[in-house]
């Protein structure tokens, strides 16, 4: 393999504007060829980009790729990766955004600011209304104190759960999972045992609680997960026998890795939104 011919001297002074936020950053002259090559590499996929955007057919994109001397393996891979996401893909993105938004506090719109020097004058009805409100609150307080149970120790201040690292989910197994995982969705027979791994992105020391569900459209089926004992922070091996509700067809395995126990049980546990302490990963599988 022959890299581009590059000059050895890299000590050229920085161009004007470098170091001051005024102008564009000028690429290093020594990398002119490298950068041109990078641009040409990006242009390699132009026909596939049109295919992804619905601007041409797969056959047209393939023809352009063959004309550019791409090999069969690269064409097959590009056809898979650039296939348009379609309405289903857009729906999945929106659902992910909804889940994420549900987990975050809503935006609080600030009240319009008062012009400086403006004085708030109590309106005529405000005096009696405020007086009445104070009286009501006082009466309620007296009633509540009288009927309150004996004092108990105050609850401990709530401690935020430990953050959980990202996990990657892979469906594994030899006996039941069929198909080339590189190219197709893993498939299992009805009622089979589904096995998977949850691999943490980095080592960590947070005990991880795991649960999982099978999902299709709006159907959520909680799975009874059997987890192999693993050290904290290591790859988690898990399995579940698919219940009868998981019938033939495409499904998604949704795995939850959390630093605290599931906040709900049954189907409700499947609808829990991701958070700092709770990572959710998904993989498609087929029940045949």
């Amino acid at each position: 393999m022959q890299p581009p011919k590059l000059p050895a001297d890299s000590s050229a002074p920085a161009p004007a504007g470098e170091g001051t936020p005024l102008g564009a950053v000028v690429p290093p002259a020594e990398l002119t060829e490298v950068i041109a090559m990078h641009r040409a590499g990006c242009a390699d996929y132009e026909s596939w980009e049109r295919y992804a955007a619905g601007g041409c057919t797969r056959a047209q994109a393939e023809a352009a790729a063959r004309a550019a001397d791409h090999d069969d393996a690269a064409i097959a891979r590009a056809a898979e990766l650039f296939a348009p996401l379609g309405d289903e893909g857009v729906a999945a993105i929106l659902a992910a955004l909804d889940r994420d938004a549900g987990d975050r506090p809503q935006h609080v719109h600030a009240e319009p600011r008062m012009a400086s020097g403006e004085v708030i004058r109590p309106r005529r009805w405000m005096g009696p209304a405020l007086g009445g409100a104070v009286a009501l609150v006082a009466a309620g307080l007296v009633l509540w104190v009288a009927g309150a149970p004996s004092p108990s120790p105050s609850p401990l201040p709530s401690v935020p759960p430990s953050p959980m690292v990202d996990h990657s989910l892979d469906i594994t197994g030899i006996a039941d999972v069929r198909g080339d995982a590189e190219r197709s969705t893993p498939s299992v027979p009805v009622g089979a045992q589904l096995q998977w791994t949850l691999r943490p992105s980095t080592q960590h020391a947070v005990p991880t609680v795991v649960w999982a569900c099978a999902m299709r459209d709006r159907t959520m089926v909680p799975l009874t997960v059997v987890r192999s004992p693993t050290a904290t922070g290591a790859t988690i091996l898990a399995s579940a026998t698919l219940p009868a509700e998981v019938t033939r067809g495409p499904w998604e395995l949704v795995a939850f890795a959390s630093s605290v126990p599931a906040p709900a049980t049954g189907v409700a546990a499947c609808a829990v939104a991701p958070a700092d302490h709770l990572k959710v990963t998904r993989r498609r599988f087929e029940v045949r």
Binding site: R77, L81, A83, A181, E182, R183, S184, T185
Partner: peptide
């Protein structure tokens, strides 16, 4: 490509 991972 990573073995065991569906690129799509």
């Amino acid at each position: 490509p990573v073995r065991g991972r569906n690129p799509r």
